[in-house]
Amino acid sequence: MPEETDGLDPNVETVLWLGEAARSAPPPGLVARIDAAVRRRAERPSRPMTAVALALAAAFVLQAAGNLVAGEWISDGIDEPYAPHAMFEMSLALVAAAVCAAAAAVRRAWGAVSVLTCTPLALGLGLHGVGELGQFAAGAVLHTAEGVLGLALLAAWWWQWRDTPRPSREAGA
């Protein structure tokens, strides 16, 4: 029973008691738990960024795997001498680029690094693939896809950057 308050309407007394009893601060452990979840969420990349980054990584891996298992067929297709050493090392570089691209699907902050490294490479491969049009269809399709995905990665990063809150000048000062 709340403390008696002489002369006060009993309903008012109940309201005051209820207001007081209901007013409790969230425990620090709960606040920390939700804080951590909100931070984790804030670090997650947007869905378009995730999709594009994974698709570009898959394209790079596909090209790397193609170089490793079908190098001779590719060389025949583009009418160039087969160079297994160069093919192997290019595959390693492409796998590294794929990891870089996939990083954008893991953390929002890593998107910029992925764009800086993978967009120029993907665009370069895309433009280089123009020469394969009419000559080696599989290569032309893969390189065009890489070029388009490179541009899409840049667009997705820009879209994501717009939606990422940044500290204001006042807050930073």
Binding site: I34, V38, A42, D163, P165
Partner: peptide, 16 residues
């Protein structure tokens, strides 16, 4: 605008 940062503000204001 919905977004992760916007939610951080919403959370801070409404958790209590």
């Amino acid at each position: 605008r919905p977004g992760a940062g916007g939610f951080a503000e919403v959370y801070a204001e409404h958790v209590t």
